[in-house]
């Protein structure tokens, strides 16, 4: 009887630990998966923007910096210049390639940090010179946490959009 009671206590403790740790493990797995997704999206955007031949400009001529939830650029995809649009809306980041429909590439964005993209100009040359990306995601599993990745991209083809001296 005593042994059974002790066994019961031990089992309850073990299963309690199992539940706690498996929850933590699921949380860790989810966090790891979200981080992988964020890295993939960030790497893809960074690579494409780095070699972009045209990036949407800041509409106000005198403005040097613009933070925005959307970015449009032309980049080489399979050796073809292609227009790509990323848009953060609600809690989703979507990607649109050419005339195809936009599709989600990242979910659970932090709805309070949707201005993901920062376009930066320089004073002496034409057009956007740098793009910063700030991805903030809240993984679905509790406890609530925030993952944030940042990238600053130096546009390598920016000289090709300059107007030259004359």
């Amino acid at each position: 009887m005593i042994t059974s009671a002790l066994l019961l206590v031990v089992l309850i403790t073990v299963f309690n630990a199992l539940d706690t740790v498996s929850g933590a493990q699921a949380y860790q797995t989810d966090r790891s998966q979200v981080l992988d997704d964020m890295r993939n999206v960030m790497n893809k955007m960074t690579r494409e923007l780095r070699q972009a031949t045209a990036v949407q400009d800041i509409p106000v001529a005198t403005q040097l910096v613009l933070t925005t939830p959307t970015v449009t650029y032309t980049t080489s995809i399979n050796n073809t210049a292609t227009a790509v649009v990323y848009t953060a809306s609600g809690t989703t980041l979507t990607r649109k390639v050419g005339t195809a429909a936009a599709f989600p590439v990242l979910k659970n964005l932090d709805p309070t940090a949707l201005n993901i993209f920062t376009l930066r100009r320089a004073t002496s040359v034409t057009g956007v010179q740098w793009v910063e990306i700030d991805l903030t995601v809240n993984p679905a599993r509790r406890p609530t946490t925030t993952l944030e990745l940042q990238s600053e991209i130096n546009l390598r083809n920016r000289t090709s959009i300059l107007t030259g001296t004359s």
Binding site: V14, L18, Q28, D36
Partner: peptide, 30 residues
């Protein structure tokens, strides 16, 4: 009974540790 209990606890602990190590290694490798 103690042995069975120990094995169960050990099994569970092993599973938990290996799965956590897998996640940790994955994160580290990634």
């Amino acid at each position: 009974v103690a042995l069975v209990t120990a094995i169960m606890v050990g099994f569970v602990a092993t599973m938990l540790v290996s799965s956590m190590m897998y996640v940790a290694f994955h994160n580290q490798t990634s």
